[in-house]
Design a protein around this nucleic acid. Structure first.
Length: 666
RNA sequence: GGCGAGAUAGCUCAGUUGGCUAGAGCACACGGUUCAUACCCGUGGUGUCGAGGGUUCGAAUCCCCCUCUCGCUACCA
C-alpha cells in the first residue's frame, strides 16, 4: 500500500456538562469515517478527540451534586469516551483539558502571549454600562452617558485579560482570501468575513475571575483562563506541542492539522480566534476547517422536556452500532441540517441495509450453497451483461475517493451502495435459477456466482470505513478477507475454489415500524419522567442526585446594589389591552399596556415566544419608569419583564393571584 | 436593519460553462421473477422547475423585480 503521508484530523472536544446526544456523537462518527477512509487510502492518520472540562457551569453542577469538579468531569468524560468506543470511533488520542501537560502548556502559552504584548490586562476602568454589557472610554460617552442606550454608566471593578485580535486581522484576511479551501462549506467563509473580519475584530476576553474551575493564570492566580484559549489549544498540546520548543515527534510530524472537524456553531472560534492564536505562536495554520451541519429532530431542536432527545446508545440498542452509523452518515447533507426521526431510521434500515445489502449477501450465499456446495470458482464463461457490472464495481473506488476528498460523506456511502444495487440487478439479468435447470449452463452459472461474490467483496471493502463490523461480517461469511485499497480497481482477485459459509446469517433483519415505535415510546416516557422528576426535585429545593442539562441556570453575577438603587425602579402590574407586530422587525411586538389609569406603549423582543393575539389580556410585570427609547422606529415607554432559560426561551412574569392593573410590585 | 443562501415530482434532494423528450432515492400503482430477509428487477407522473417581466434561435440554468423560507449578524429597555 502506497504511503501517502500524514493526515492529522480532530473533532471538537465535547463539553462535559452532560451526556452527548446524537448530534455530538454524529461528529465523532463522521470523523471516524473520514479517518478510516484516509487510513484505507494509505495515509498515516492521527485522529484526536476528547473532552472540554472547565468552566463555571461544571463547577456549579459539581457543587450541586456534592462532588468536586474533577470527580464530576471524570465521570462525564468517561461516559463520553465509552460512547465513542461503543460507536467504534477509532481515535488515536483522547485528550482531556484537565490533563496535566495540557494545563501546563496553556499556562505557558498565556504567559508567552502576555510577555509579547498580545494579551493585556484591563480593569474596565472606563465607564461600564451594565445593561449593554459593554464598557466605554470617557471620550466615547455622550454627555457622560452610554452612547448606546443613553443611561448612566458606572466605573466597573472587575478586571480581565484581553487578547489583541485586531493586531493579526489583516494577516488572517489575507490567508482566508488566498486559501479558499480553508473554511468549508464556503458559505461560512463569507459569513465570517462579512460579520467579523471586515467590520473590525473586537479584542477577546481570555480570563475570568468569577469562578475558579479553570486553568489558573500562573502569574495572576485570581484569574482562570477562559474557555477558548483553554479549549482550542488542545489541538497542539494533545500531540505534544511545547512552548519552549521541546516538541514530541508526534507533534513535529503532524502539525499543522489537515482537518478540524467541528459543528457549524463554533466556526467563528476555529476560523478567527484559533488561527490568530497560532499566528501569535508563530505556528502554521490548519489546512482546513469544516463546519458540519446538525441532525435535527423533525425540524425542531431536541429538548429533554419534550422527551425527544435521541441518544446514540438508545439508537444502537434498537438497531445496532453499524445501523446507527449508517443512518447518521447517510442522512447528513453537506451544507444544510439533516433530519432524524425514528420512522426515518426504520425506513432506511429496511430499504438500504436489510433489502439492498443484507438480502443481496444472503441470496448470493444461498445460491452458491444450493448450486455448487458453496464453492466459488471462475470458469471464464463470460457474457455481455458482465461488462457493466464489472465497470460499475471497479469504477466505484475513484468515485468514492473523490466524494471523500470533498468531505461529502453521505454521497460517498451512497456510491458504495450503488455497487450492491447493481449486483441485485445482475442477479435478475443472469437468472441463476434458470441456468441451474440445465447442466449445459453449469460453467456459466459458476461464473455468475463468482462475479457476484467478487462484487460483494469489493463493495464490502469500500464499506469498511463506514460500517466496519458489517464489512467484516460479510468477509467472514464469504470466507475471504477485505481487499486493499490499491486493488479495488481490479476485478477477479477472489480466490478460486473458496467455500463460503454453509449457513448465512442475515446481516440486518427487517424491522417493523410499529414494534420499534412502541419501544421508542417507552424510551421517551422514561426520558420525560426523568426530566420531570428532576424539575420537581429542584423546585422542591431538594438536592438532586445526578445533574442534567438545563436543570438550573447560572448567570454572571452583577455588581451589588444598594436598596436606594433598587427603590428607584418602579414596578407595576400592567394589563395588555392591545398588541401588534412591529413591521420590519423579526423579534419585536408592540403592546399597549394599561397601568392604573394610564396606557403606555411598550416594545418587547418576544415575538418568537408569544403571538400578538395571545399577549392581549395578560397581566404582566412592568418596569414603568424606564427612560423611553425608540426601537425599530417605534417608541417604547417601559419594559415587560420575562424569565429566560439557557436556550433563550422567554416567559412573561405574571402575578400569582389576580391583581388589578397598576398594582405596585415591591 | 446588514450580509449571504435557497424556492425543481407526495417526501428528501441532483441538475456542471443556458441546448436533445428535466433526473435520483423514498413512497405509491401495475407487471415480471422466485435464489433470497413478503425480497429483487422492470414500467408508470399532465412536475405551471416560487410569481411576474426581460435577454436569447433556445433558460430550471443569465438579468430585473416581487413573494416566501433559511443561515450568520445587529437590535431585542
Amino acid at each position: 500500500m502506497a504511503n501517502k503521508g500524514k493526515f492529522y484530523m480532530t473533532t471538537a472536544i465535547a463539553y462535559t456538562s452532560g451526556k452527548p446526544h446524537i448530534g455530538n456523537t454524529y461528529e465523532a462518527i463522521l470523523a471516524d469515517a473520514i479517518a478510516r477512509f484516509r487510513r484505507f487510502e494509505g495515509y498515516e492518520v492521527f485522529m484526536q478527540t476528547g473532552t472540554d472540562e472547565h468552566g463555571q457551569k461544571i463547577e456549579l453542577k459539581a457543587n450541586a451534586s456534592g462532588i468536586t469538579p474533577k470527580e464530576f468531569v471524570d465521570g462525564v468524560s468517561g461516559q463520553i469516551k465509552d460512547i465513542w468506543n461503543a460507536m467504534d470511533v477509532s481515535y488515536d488520542k483522547f485528550i482531556r483539558t484537565t490533563d496535566e501537560d495540557h494545563e501546563k502548556q496553556v499556562q505557558k502559552i498565556f504567559k508567552k502571549f502576555y510577555d509579547q504584548g498580545d494579551i493585556y490586562k484591563s480593569e474596565y476602568e472606563g465607564m461600564y454600562c451594565t445593561p449593554c454589557e459593554s464598557f466605554w472610554t470617557e471620550s466615547q460617552l455622550v454627555d457622560g452617558k452610554c452612547p448606546d442606550c443613553g443611561r448612566e454608566c458606572q466605573p466597573a471593578k472587575e478586571e480581565a485579560y484581553f487578547f489583541k485580535m485586531s493586531k493579526y486581522a489583516d494577516r488572517l484576511i489575507e490567508h482566508i482570501n488566498t486559501h479558499p479551501e480553508f473554511i468549508q462549506p464556503v458559505s461560512r467563509k463569507n459569513e465570517m468575513m462579512n460579520n467579523f473580519l471586515l467590520p473590525g475584530l473586537q479584542d477577546l476576553c481570555v480570563s475570568r475571575t468569577s469562578y475558579t474551575w479553570g486553568i489558573p493564570v500562573d502569574f495572576d492566580p485570581k484569574h482562570v483562563i477562559y474557555v477558548w484559549m483553554d479549549a482550542l489549544t488542545n489541538y497542539i498540546t494533545g500531540i505534544g506541542y511545547d512552548v519552549d520548543g521541546n516538541h514530541t515527534d508526534v507533534y513535529k510530524k503532524n502539525w499543522p492539522a489537515d482537518l478540524h472537524l467541528i459543528g457549524k456553531d463554533i466556526i467563528r472560534f476555529h476560523t478567527i480566534y484559533w488561527p490568530i492564536f497560532l499566528m501569535a505562536l508563530d505556528l502554521p495554520l490548519p489546512k482546513q476547517v469544516f463546519g458540519h451541519p446538525w441532525l435535527l429532530q423533525g425540524g425542531d431542536k431536541m429538548s429533554k422536556s419534550k422527551g425527544n432527545v435521541i441518544y446514540a446508545d438508545d439508537m444502537a440498542s434498537l438497531f445496532g452500532v453499524d445501523a446507527t452509523r449508517f443512518f447518521v452518515l447517510h442522512e447528513m447533507p453537506f451544507e444544510n441540517d439533516g433530519v432524524i426521526t425514528w420512522e426515518l431510521v426504520v425506513e432506511r434500515y429496511n430499504t438500504e441495509l436489510a433489502n439492498v445489502l443484507g438480502n443481496l449477501v444472503n441470496r448470493t450465499i444461498s445460491m452458491a450453497n444450493k448450486y455448487h456446495g458453496g464453492v466459488i470458482a471462475s470458469t471464464g464463461v463470460t457474457d455481455e451483461v458482465d461488462a457493466d457490472l464489472k465497470a460499475v464495481v471497479t469504477s466505484a473506488k475513484d468515485k468514492i475517493t473523490k466524494k471523500m476528498e470533498e468531505l461529502r460523506v453521505a454521497d460517498a456511502i451512497s456510491e458504495v451502495f450503488a455497487i450492491f444495487r447493481r449486483s441485485n440487478k445482475y442477479i435478475d439479468e443472469t437468472a441463476p435459477w434458470a441456468l441451474a435447470k440445465d447442466e449445459a449452463n453449469a460453467d456459466r452459472l459458476k461464473e455468475v456466482l463468482y462475479n457476484l461474490t467478487e462484487a460483494i467483496t469489493i463493495g464490502a471493502s469500500l464499506l469498511a470505513p463506514f460500517l466496519p463490523s458489517t464489512a467484516k461480517k460479510i468477509a467472514e461469511q464469504l470466507n475471504t478477507s477485505l481487499r486493499d485499497y490499491d486493488d479495488l480497481d481490479q476485478f477477479g482477485l477472489f480466490a478460486n475454489g473458496t467455500k463460503v459459509t454453509e449457513s448465512p446469517v442475515p446481516l440486518f433483519g427487517r424491522l417493523d415500524t410499529k414494534e420499534i415505535m412502541e419501544k421508542v415510546t417507552v424510551i421517551q416516557e422514561a426520558q420525560k419522567a426523568a426530566y420531570e422528576a428532576e424539575e420537581a426535585a429542584l423546585n422542591g429545593g431538594t438536592k438532586v442526585e445526578e445533574k442534567k442539562d438545563e436543570a438550573v441556570i447560572d448567570i454572571e453575577a452583577k455588581e451589588e446594589i444598594t436598596y436606594d438603587a433598587f427603590a428607584k425602579m418602579q414596578f407595576q402590574v400592567g394589563e395588555i389591552i392591545a398588541c401588534e407586530e412591529v413591521p420590519k422587525s423579526k423579534k419585536l411586538l408592540c403592546s399597549k399596556v394599561k397601568i392604573g389609569s394610564e396606557v403606555k406603549q411598550i416594545v418587547s423582543g418576544i415575538k418568537q415566544h408569544y403571538s400578538a393575539a395571545e399577549m392581549v389580556g395578560k397581566k404582566v410585570m412592568v418596569l414603568v419608569n424606564l427612560k423611553p427609547a425608540t426601537l425599530a422606529g417605534v417608541m417604547s415607554e417601559g419594559m415587560l419583564l420575562c424569565a429566560e432559560d439557557a436556550e433563550g426561551n422567554l416567559a412573561l412574569m405574571t402575578p400569582e393571584k389576580p391583581m388589578p392593573a397598576g398594582a405596585e410590585i415591591c
